[in-house]
């Protein structure tokens, strides 16, 4: 038996919005530690690694580890039937061919449940080694979304150049070119508005804006995003999943291989 109850159900709705355009289907691997999902997009260019920690749920029961094969578009459609303030419970029997979602209104005066068929998925997992990145850039997630959106006007790719002075995002195309420079924040009252660069070595890499724009769908989950880069390894874009009190409930991480010159 697997059962997980999340009082702040809107978090699960946001998690689905952050992956449904990038992935068609994926397995939720449920264990005592929590619910994990790892999947590549259909073109095998980007990788999503997602964790919802068991102690982030108000109730969590997982008698034995199970893998729930899910059509993510279907799950997203069902979660849209939940109100933003609903409590969401996910339930699956061992060896079941279906998963149940229960939505309770805060006053408990409206309870709905939806059963969705599970899929048999032959999933591939990639081993992601622990990496000490040369640069880790933390910035407001809304700022990163805006940069990706704005530079998409100019080209398909963005060059991210991280030095001790700050970060420069550049794009060029037939129209012309554009640059956005962010300096490290000297003094900010609010931590979520800060730009912080932790740099061991300067790095310049090129990435597809199409994929970065997919990643920014996770911005509603977190006020800050971190970009971790080293030469010749995939970029890691991480959004921490925090509840209203700021306690960590997990993360969504996206990995994207750099583009190389033809």
């Amino acid at each position: 038996m697997f059962e997980a109850r999340l009082v702040e159900g809107s978090l699960l709705k946001k998690v689905m919005e952050s992956i449904k355009d990038l992935l068609n289907e994926a397995s939720w691997d449920c264990s005592g530690n929590g619910m994990c999902l790892q999947a590549m997009d259909s073109s095998h260019v980007a990788l999503v690694s997602l964790m919802l920690k068991s102690d982030g749920f108000e109730n969590y029961r997982c008698d034995r580890s199970i893998s729930l094969g899910i059509n993510l578009a279907s799950m997203s459609k069902i979660l849209k039937c939940a109100s933003n303030d609903d409590i969401i419970t996910i339930r699956a029997e061992d060896d079941a061919d279906a998963i149940t979602f229960m939505f309770e209104s805060p006053k408990q005066d409206r309870v709905s449940d939806y059963e969705m068929k599970l899929m048999n998925l032959d999933t591939e997992h990639l081993g992601i080694p622990d990496t000490e990145y040369a640069c880790v850039i933390k910035m407001p997630s809304g700022e990163f979304s805006r940069i990706c959106r704005d530079l998409s006007v100019l080209g398909d790719s963005v060059i991210i150049c991280c030095t001790k002075d700050g970060v420069r995002f550049s794009a060029k195309g037939d129209l012309g070119n554009g640059n956005i420079k962010l300096a490290q924040s000297a003094n900010v009252d609010k931590e979520e508005e800060a730009v912080v660069v932790d740099m061991r070595e300067a790095v310049t890499l090129t990435f597809s804006l199409r994929y970065l724009n997919f990643f920014t769908k996770a911005a509603p989950l977190s006020s800050q995003v971190s970009l971790s880069m080293s030469e010749d390894v995939p970029l890691m874009v991480e959004y921490k999943i925090n509840d209203k009190e700021g306690d960590s409930k997990g993360y969504v991480r996206y990995y994207l291989a750099p583009k190389i010159e033809d």
């Binding site: 997992h125 398909d156 583009k259």
Partner: peptide
């Protein structure tokens, strides 16, 4: 996309 590497070029299947 031109010049775009696959992610599995970097991470081995486990």
């Amino acid at each position: 996309e031109s010049g775009q590497q696959e992610i599995s070029t970097y991470y081995a299947r486990s």
